[in-house]
Write a protein that binds this DNA or RNA. Structure first.
Lengths: 186, 186
DNA sequence: TTCGCCATGTAACTAGTTACATGATTCC
DNA sequence: GGAATCATGTAACTAGTTACATGGCGAA
């Protein structure tokens, strides 16, 4: 039931792990590139602000988990490219093996449902159907990605697992919301 | 896709709203009492540290959303009892009507799944089955509560909606995890 | 000419966390 | 004798946020 991503004695934060992981999967990147990579991969369930990415990267360098190389460019702004070190790879592995810090708690939506009797019934109904809409568009989005990659594309297995998780979640939410919607209407 | 509970120009934080909501539902309480109330009600999806509760309450008083009354007790420690003001009730209502700040993002578990190819297959399998176990025990817990209250107990409707949400979620997770478990075994 | 992409950051802030501190009373 | 309950807080910290700042290049 923990919320804060906590640095358990030498461990990584989830954001650090995400960045190291993307460096491991996709090779050396700039902060800007990592931001793009995040948005098109783990962005559905882990989307740090870009300033946070720029804050984390130098930290990784000073703790020896990554190296920075300055790249001078003529036509574009100069950039810093970060590369995973063996120590970084080890730290990432430790993080991957460690039990996940709690998620699923902190759900302001449910707080509104729980307290729904204090507001107008219409307000609750609006929240519920908005939730259903969100879940449906999440589902559509994930299905579109599935379609774009073929099922069983190589190198996509673990990513597809997260999409399937998202789909199961979305379907659970739409099912719940439809039922509640009907009840509130009656 | 926001994570941080944000104070949108005069708005409440979710923790403030939770406390005001419990004061509205259950009447005047001490910080200690509110902590108990949180644990036995919204604790499944919103569980602030007790120090946070003690930090928030005086803030509610200074912004006129609650009043504090000191109660001197002979046999127990003295306490402060907080009571909702009309302004507090209004602020709560505004919060209840407002669209929920994003949740569902920030899922370190999925980060581990996504990066599962970087660690040993056994590690991923362990995470997945741990997740299934958690979901199953959540389900059991929620069903136990449902059984304890009878179905359709008065004053329990909105709370029961959150339990049903939790059940749908738990079932989605167990379904996903069982399928993935089988795949990883093969 | 305007807009979007590339590219990196600073400054100010905040909602939350853990660890620590205190002390009487009541129940086993 | 020891543990749980009642009851409230301080101190130190942190991972994240938004708003702001800068500026050249290429394409419509």
């Amino acid at each position: 039931m923990r919320t804060t991503t906590q640095r358990a004695t030498g461990g990584l934060t989830a954001t650090e792990a995400a960045l190291l992981g993307l460096l491991a999967l996709r090779g050396p990147q700039s902060g800007y590139g990592l931001k793009k990579a995040v948005d098109t991969s783990v962005g559905y369930f882990w989307k740090p602000a870009k300033t946070q990415i720029y804050a984390v990267l130098p930290r990784l360098v000073t703790s020896g988990l990554a190296t920075r190389r300055a790249i001078v460019q003529a036509d574009r702004p100069d950039k810093s490219v970060y590369r995973l070190t063996p120590a970084g790879r080890r730290a990432l592995n430790d993080w991957l093996e460690a039990p996940p810090e709690g998620d699923g708690d902190r759900t302001p939506f449910l707080l509104r449902v729980y307290l729904g009797g204090l507001a107008s019934p219409e307000s609750l109904a609006r929240h519920v159907s908005a939730r259903r809409d969100e879940a449906e568009s999440l589902k559509a989005e994930l299905e579109a990605i599935d379609a774009r990659k073929g099922v069983g594309a190589e190198g996509d297995y673990h990513a597809s697992l997260t999409r399937r998780y998202g789909l199961a979640y979305a379907e659970a939410v739409t099912g719940w919301a439809s039922a509640v919607d009907r009840e509130l209407g009656a």
